[in-house]
């Protein structure tokens, strides 16, 4: 009993001393009259040690340009280029791999989903060209994935010979039509 009474007295005394000391300290600083006023610290030397207040959002807009709306752009508008293939082939050549490296960076930075469509020249059959077009689009997708583009960002389709970019039955037109084309899905 006695002990607990003494403990309580000491506790009260200590608390009162602390309150007094704080009151005296507060009294030393300018005119802040109340200890528990949240604004009490303002203007005192202690403020200097606190982290600076957060900068309002408006200020960041002024200093950096707005991000382009990649999702509404054709991939060609942010630097993604089509790649071309040899007759009857779906393997990527060195030039195509170079273009696809740049495409991989552009697609990663844009953060968009792109559609890769495979195309063929008019020679051969509709059915086999649909399959060959898919092989071309898949070859491009697989290479982009190997360069770190998430597979979820790449959709693949084949139009075969049914959506030519160039008309005419000559080598120039055929070469333009054997391609993997990038477009907005």
């Amino acid at each position: 009993m006695n002990r607990s009474w003494m403990k309580r007295t000491i506790l009260i005394a200590t608390t009162m001393t602390l309150v007094l000391a704080l009151a005296m300290f507060a009294g030393c600083s300018k005119k802040a009259p109340v200890v528990d006023d949240p604004a009490a610290g303002q203007g005192s030397g202690q403020v200097e040690d606190l982290p600076p207040p957060p900068v309002p959002e408006d200020n960041t807009v002024d200093t950096t340009p707005p991000a382009p709306d990649y999702a509404s752009m054709d991939p060609a508008e942010y630097g993604v280029q089509d790649v071309f293939f040899a007759f009857d082939q779906y393997e990527l050549d060195n030039e195509s791999m170079g273009i696809l490296s740049a495409n991989a960076r552009a697609i990663r930075e844009a953060g968009t989903v792109v559609l890769i469509s495979g195309h063929c020249d008019e020679r051969g059959t509709l059915e086999y060209n649909l399959a060959l077009g898919e092989k071309r689009a898949n070859a491009v997708r697989d290479y982009l994935v190997s360069l770190g583009v998430p597979a979820s960002r790449l959709r693949v389709t084949s139009y075969g010979e049914n959506r030519p970019f160039a008309t005419g039955s000559n080598e120039d037109a055929w070469a333009l039509n054997r391609r993997a084309h990038f477009e907005r899905p």
């Binding site: 059915e127 649909l130 399959a131 898919e134 092989k135 693949v156 084949s158």
Partner: peptide, 25 residues
């Protein structure tokens, strides 16, 4: 992937088709 080249069975109750399912047909 590809879903094409359908040919109806003479019995009428099924079809042949090529499916690539993302791989090859």
């Amino acid at each position: 992937g590809l879903n094409f080249g359908a040919d109806w069975h003479p019995g009428g109750d099924e079809l042949l088709v090529s499916l690539s399912r993302g791989g090859n047909p």
